[in-house]
Design a protein around this nucleic acid. Structure first.
Lengths: 224, 224
DNA sequence: ATAATAGTGTCTCTAAGACATTATATT
DNA sequence: AATATAATGTCTTAGAGACACTATTAT
């Protein structure tokens, strides 16, 4: 078809979760050059016989032991020199998962907390309390991940992906606040969510909470 | 690095404009199989020494004679069988341009009007009055283009890209209505736009319009 | 004068924010 | 009883929609 060589195509997946009201992303420690011992997103090359979405799913499974999560394509990074070894185009994905499903027994895998410097363009990834060196352009990718999640939250119900099946309104609000990086008005949040039609009362309540127990809701699967 | 072969990577660009209050996209007629004589978006393979963004700009220049327009990445299509000849991953872009800048002297290039079937998931591309056959998955791409533009319009001032340098509020409203596919409230649109800070009065007015002439505005380059 | 759209002023309605009050669990 | 959060009700405020009225040009 053409005399040109083809670039390599990789998928990199930002698997995002929330731990203690903090946003975190699963990262893998590199054990070879370049960027040896730095942290990168789970990724891999796309095979000729699998779609991009399938490749992203496979990467999640192989590198992080995760299956069946919310995942969507984010952006494709294609600067010429983003990998110094060869030309690599990276199709990136965002995935959301509850913290309890993040397998911590995987080697060289860690949760990196995403910290926003005050009004700064950059963000820091904190692994085990220390600011982590990030390989390639993966810090840019995580930056875009946060932007995407914030933008999406206003009109797509993605908060449920980060909560157990049954949850209270306050838990949902905390998830939104963690993603947005700011506090929300409780009354307004409550009204908006209940009016959205996305919530379904389970009829159950919390227990053992030391105060009036909140009603538990689940995500209303809008199977019309 | 790996024993795998690499897929081909193409960029396809949806160059969108508005003619007579109708949304249109530039398409190129194929003169070889597969899909011979069907219409496709201007596209080309990514060279190893150019970024994705550069490749998109080059495609616009070479295939449609267009330079210096608003352009942004849309989505990357990667189904295994989207091109029956070989594995091709397509990084797609949306570009916006005023109708007068669309070069009509290019061979095999035509403006395809985008028509929305009532509440249908699909859309039709009309070339010279007839519904056009679209090659590959490019109809899906155009469908996503419309979705993206609609979503973006609410919070990013992209309407200006489809208007001459000086324009009236009603012209801007028509652009928004054309993209959204519905009428907008005039009073509210006017207030919202003037309050946005994106508009700068030129002090000039229309002439030869057969009615009270409207004030002409320009896009306020927010050079803080 | 007439036609046609521009532009202003005002009223209503809806949704968000603020805040007060009552309810219900654990300790 | 004390404490802590849940849940409800009401008031205020901001913005969108509706609509009436005035303004300004070409014919």
């Amino acid at each position: 078809m053409s005399g040109h060589r083809n670039p390599a195509v990789a998928v990199d997946v930002a698997l995002v979760t929330i731990v203690d009201d903090r946003l975190a992303v699963v990262m893998v420690r590199r054990n070879q050059d370049p960027h040896r011992s730095q942290w990168q997103l789970p990724g891999g090359f796309v095979r000729l016989d699998e779609s991009l979405d399938d490749a992203a799913g496979r990467v999640l499974r192989e590198k992080a032991g995760i299956n069946d999560v919310y995942i969507e394509q984010l952006y494709t990074f294609g600067a010429v020199d983003r990998d110094q070894r060869e030309r690599v185009i990276s199709v990136t994905y965002v995935a959301l998962v509850t913290a309890d499903r993040v397998a911590d027994e995987f080697p060289d895998v860690a949760l990196a907390f995403i910290e926003h410097a005050e009004h700064a363009a950059t963000l820091a990834l904190i692994v085990e309390g220390k600011s982590a060196a990030v390989a390639f352009d993966h810090a840019d990718i995580v930056g875009l991940v946060v932007k995407r999640l914030r933008g999406k939250l206003a009109y797509v119900p993605i908060g449920y992906e980060l909560l157990p099946e049954r949850f209270t309104l306050l838990q949902l609000q905390r998830v939104h606040e963690t993603i947005l990086g700011r506090t929300l008005n409780k009354d307004s949040f409550r009204r908006t969510m209940l009016a959205s039609g996305d919530l379904e009362p389970t009829g159950e309540r919390q227990s053992d909470v030391g105060h009036r127990p909140a009603a538990l809701y689940r995500y209303a699967t809008t199977s019309l």
